[in-house]
Amino acid sequence: MTGPVTRNMAEPLRRTYAAAPSPKLVVAVGDCAHNCGVFASAHGVAGAVSDVVPVDVEVPGCPPPPEAIVAALRGLTGR
């Protein structure tokens, strides 16, 4: 996931997460997905990804460096 979760997408995200088969992994990529970044006080923002669905790993940065994203994915998959 990237970016903050908007109010109109919070419920579709919950439904999508619930419909996905296990095992499932959620990666919050970037500062906006982690803590809403510059959009933290915006009217249309419901919150960070972890406020809506369980997050397995967060990759900080605005934007995060590609090697950090790859490292996070490799850490989750064990590869």
Score class of each variant (00 low, 15 high):
residue 5 V to M: 13
residue 14 R to M: 15
residue 39 F to W: 05
residue 66 P to D: 12
residue 13 L to W: 02
residue 79 R to A: 10
residue 77 T to G: 09
residue 62 C to V: 10
residue 53 V to G: 07
residue 68 A to V: 01
residue 74 R to K: 11
residue 60 P to L: 09
residue 26 V to P: 00
residue 44 G to Y: 03
residue 26 V to F: 02
residue 13 L to Q: 09
residue 66 P to E: 10
residue 29 V to H: 00
residue 57 V to G: 00
residue 76 L to G: 06
residue 79 R to F: 04
residue 50 S to V: 08
residue 52 V to H: 07
residue 69 I to T: 13
residue 18 A to M: 06
residue 7 R to D: 02
residue 48 A to Y: 00
residue 53 V to F: 09
residue 52 V to Y: 01
residue 4 P to W: 07
residue 4 P to V: 11
residue 53 V to I: 15
residue 10 A to T: 07
residue 60 P to F: 04
residue 43 H to M: 08
residue 20 A to R: 04
residue 57 V to W: 00
residue 54 P to H: 12
residue 64 P to K: 12
residue 36 C to E: 06
residue 72 A to E: 02
residue 40 A to R: 13
residue 79 R to P: 01
residue 5 V to P: 02
residue 61 G to N: 14
residue 59 V to F: 07
residue 54 P to E: 08
residue 8 N to W: 04
residue 10 A to L: 09
residue 46 A to E: 12
residue 9 M to C: 10
residue 77 T to V: 13
residue 63 P to G: 14
residue 27 V to D: 04
residue 21 P to Y: 05
residue 19 A to P: 05
residue 51 D to H: 05
residue 1 M to I: 13
residue 75 G to C: 03
residue 67 E to A: 11
residue 79 R to M: 08
residue 70 V to R: 14
residue 13 L to S: 10
residue 37 G to E: 03
residue 23 P to W: 10
residue 55 V to W: 01
residue 26 V to K: 03
residue 72 A to H: 00
residue 44 G to L: 03
residue 53 V to A: 07
residue 27 V to Y: 03
residue 26 V to G: 08
residue 76 L to C: 05
residue 5 V to W: 05
residue 24 K to D: 08
residue 56 D to M: 05
residue 1 M to D: 06
residue 22 S to D: 12
residue 1 M to R: 03
residue 31 D to G: 11
residue 58 E to F: 04
residue 5 V to Y: 07
residue 5 V to Q: 04
residue 44 G to R: 04
residue 70 V to T: 15
residue 2 T to V: 12
residue 62 C to Q: 08
residue 29 V to Y: 00
residue 55 V to H: 02
residue 63 P to H: 09
residue 29 V to P: 00
residue 7 R to Y: 00
residue 47 G to I: 12
residue 65 P to K: 10
residue 6 T to A: 04
residue 44 G to Q: 13
residue 34 H to K: 10
residue 54 P to K: 14
residue 58 E to R: 14
residue 36 C to H: 01
residue 38 V to M: 04
residue 61 G to Q: 14
residue 15 R to Y: 02
residue 57 V to T: 08
residue 39 F to G: 05
residue 77 T to C: 10
residue 50 S to C: 11
residue 35 N to T: 06
residue 63 P to E: 15
residue 73 L to M: 13
residue 47 G to W: 01
residue 51 D to Q: 13
residue 48 A to R: 03
residue 30 G to I: 00
residue 7 R to T: 10
residue 16 T to I: 08
residue 50 S to P: 01
residue 74 R to H: 08
residue 29 V to L: 09
residue 73 L to C: 09
residue 12 P to F: 02
residue 58 E to P: 00
residue 66 P to N: 06
residue 75 G to P: 01
residue 55 V to T: 07
residue 34 H to A: 14
residue 8 N to R: 15
residue 69 I to V: 14
residue 33 A to V: 10
residue 27 V to Q: 05
residue 14 R to Y: 11
residue 7 R to M: 05
residue 14 R to Q: 15
residue 4 P to Q: 12
residue 32 C to T: 11
residue 44 G to V: 07
residue 12 P to V: 09
residue 73 L to T: 06
residue 23 P to I: 11
residue 15 R to E: 12
residue 72 A to W: 00
residue 73 L to H: 03
residue 43 H to L: 14
residue 16 T to P: 00
residue 74 R to T: 13
residue 67 E to M: 06
residue 27 V to E: 04
residue 23 P to K: 15
residue 2 T to Y: 03
residue 45 V to Y: 06
residue 63 P to R: 15
residue 67 E to I: 04
residue 16 T to C: 08
residue 52 V to D: 01
residue 42 A to K: 04
residue 42 A to D: 07
residue 34 H to R: 09
